[in-house]
Design a protein around this nucleic acid. Structure first.
Length: 212
DNA sequence: CTCCCGATAT
DNA sequence: ATATCAGGAG
């Protein structure tokens, strides 16, 4: 594995040049709404999630609202994000657990967040970073793919990738770096058809699957 | 490891 | 027709 922090710093500099300003693309008003939006974002585009939550949050906004809503109603409202049965059940149970054990508030704590139904480390780190300004590496499909292509990790397990990246990047930059890889992954280092000829990372990248 | 699953790009 | 999208649970 590449543990060269200087090489990683070069990569980070290029990403900062490409994307001076980054933030989550999910729309939300409260930490709880961000939590719901992030659960919905599994295997779904942010664009589609925002389309759904725009209507959803007008009908249901708080943990109390979601915990009391009929499961079938919730399933219908989120249907177009895919995995709608799992997501609806998880969100409803998650809201119920927040009401019972956390006074209706989203805990600003990784260990507590991942105990909520439907919330893994990826979702927890998104919420911690964006809503509470607590640093965390967010390993989603883009971060996983690009970390491997750029040789920032030898691992495929998301948790191992998360810890590999934490070693190479200043803690204050964990969330920005995650967002940088996501922006970069959407525009250049795409899963299916990476834009290698147009990529500023070309001289630092040894990805052998290069094709235009 | 498999399953969950609709919308979109290729 | 098939791969992929800010994954998580059993």
């Amino acid at each position: 594995m590449n543990t060269d922090k200087k090489r990683t710093a070069r990569i980070r500099k290029i990403l900062r040049t490409l994307y001076p300003e980054v933030k989550t693309q999910l729309d939300y008003e409260t930490p709880f709404q961000l939590l719901v939006a992030t659960i919905l974002s599994a295997q779904c585009t942010d664009k589609q999630v925002n389309r759904v939550t725009a209507k959803l949050f007008k009908k249901l906004a708080t943990p109390n609202d979601f915990s009391k809503a009929p499961l079938e109603t919730l399933e219908t409202l989120i249907h177009s994000t895919g995995f709608y049965r799992n997501k609806a059940r998880n969100i409803k149970n998650c809201a119920g657990m927040l009401m019972e054990k956390h006074a209706g508030e989203v805990p600003a704590d990784l260990e507590k967040l991942v105990k909520l139904p439907g919330v893994g480390r990826k979702t927890a780190n998104v919420v911690l970073g964006a809503a509470f300004n607590i640093p965390g590496i967010v390993v989603d499909t883009h971060v996983s793919r690009i970390s491997q292509r750029l040789n920032l990790t030898d691992n495929k397990d998301p948790v191992k990738i998360e810890f590999d990246l934490m070693e190479q990047i200043p803690k204050k930059q964990w969330d920005v770096f995650s967002l940088h890889l996501i922006y970069f992954g959407r525009e250049f280092c795409k899963a299916r058809k990476p834009a290698c000829p147009d990529c500023l990372m070309n001289k630092l990248c040894t990805y052998t699957g290069k094709r235009s």
